[in-house]
Nucleic acid binder design. Structure first.
Lengths: 142, 142
DNA sequence: TATTAGTCTATTAATACAATAGACTTTATA
DNA sequence: TATAAAGTCTATTGTATTAATAGACTAATA
């Protein structure tokens, strides 16, 4: 399951995606509309900014807005940012490969083989799941 | 990431799958060979027994052995048993549907649509990942 | 009937997640 | 240029989950 942090991040991103481009939106507005504790949301937005997904404008009339295009923000990136690797085993992560503690002999890598396939397919799907795609599907349903 | 419990369970199951059918294996043997705290393993094996995957024989010459065929034990079942639903959102689980707390308006279901697809594909893959498949792949590699 | 081995309940330790509090800095604009 | 609006940062707290441990109890077999 996704952590609350990731869920909040996705909800906030979708909310911002529906606003006119570059228009700064108040943290308080997002927090209220999406039912997110404001202070918690501040930290999340800050992380998204550090990751280059959002930008912010300070002072009166300031707020957060989407920096990247909705086509360029996908769920794989967001999940990795807050929940870490998508892989189910440390030995099948793309960047941070680590031998499983439990791995005693090489025969066990039948397990690895299977979970590598799961990871690859999941990542592919999550990369296709962009903000643009989410919004498109949201519209189609109504 | 899989919990240790699930990893231990998979390792134990693969270990038992390689033994002659119905031959009781000591908990201590599995624990030692797979580097699992014995007491922790006992609880895991008990859960697998309750789930109908393993059986046990008490007394001298006793131990645990696979009850189901290696074709009939898949990673989706094992993961659900110890880590709960495979879905990434409560609103896309098969059995225990629950509205997301964070879901404020129906438009957000673009998110649901995307994560439903992820869940379905993941479950399909994990169901194909049987013990038999894991062992087959393990052999192929060596 | 002694020994081996599985079953069960309770407790503790460690870690990660979620949320909160408050002080500080920056910026727009009246 | 003061001030109010708004973002940034650090630290702390509470809570839940995971991982592991301890020990008493029950059952079965040679």
């Amino acid at each position: 399951m996704l952590s609350k942090k990731t869920k909040y991040a996705i909800n906030a991103l979708v909310y911002l995606s529906k606003k006119p481009p570059k228009q700064p939106i108040l943290i308080s507005e997002i927090a209220e509309h999406e039912n997110i504790p404001q202070k918690f949301l501040e930290a999340i937005l800050l992380d998204l900014k550090k990751a280059g997904i959002l930008a912010s404008k300070k002072g009166k009339g300031g707020g957060y807005f989407l920096l990247k295009s909705t086509d360029d923000v996908n769920m794989a990136d967001v999940m990795r940012l807050f929940d870490g690797p998508i892989a189910l085993l440390p030995c099948v992560t793309h960047k941070y490969y680590q031998k499983c503690d439990e791995c005693v002999d090489e025969e066990t890598c039948g397990i690895r083989s299977v979970f590598l396939e799961v990871r690859n397919q999941t990542v592919d799907l999550l990369k296709k799941a962009t903000l643009a795609e989410i919004i498109k599907r949201g519209i189609l349903i109504h």
